[in-house]
Amino acid sequence: MTTKKFMIVNRKAPYGTVYALESLEVVLIGAAFEQDVSLAFMDDGVYQLKKGHQTKGIGMKAFEKTYGALEDYDVTKLYVDQESMAARGLTPEDLCVPVEMMPRADLGKLMEDQDVVLSF
């Protein structure tokens, strides 16, 4: 099987819409087929990685824990957009998994470099 460079671009907050959860499913499926998958988090998408989701009160599954399994799936390239983090008062220490934070312009270049870009 040919390996392609996939980037999944996440721009939506979790729980308010189903995009974040659907994106995670695609990541797990893509990685199960041994593709080269990286994740970018921009705009409200950076909120997906915010530590400490307690979803009992809204009756939804807390999928924050699943980001911890990405390493088992060999998905280790997680990029967050620096400008998006700043606009939300977030630092990498606020996030539930290790990430690489980079300026938006650099993230844009990285997007250019992909075979497939999937948008959520």
Partner: peptide
Amino acid sequence: NEFQIAPAVRVLTKA
């Protein structure tokens, strides 16, 4: 319990 998912076979094998 830890990750809220059932792992794919490849991941299960490795883990």
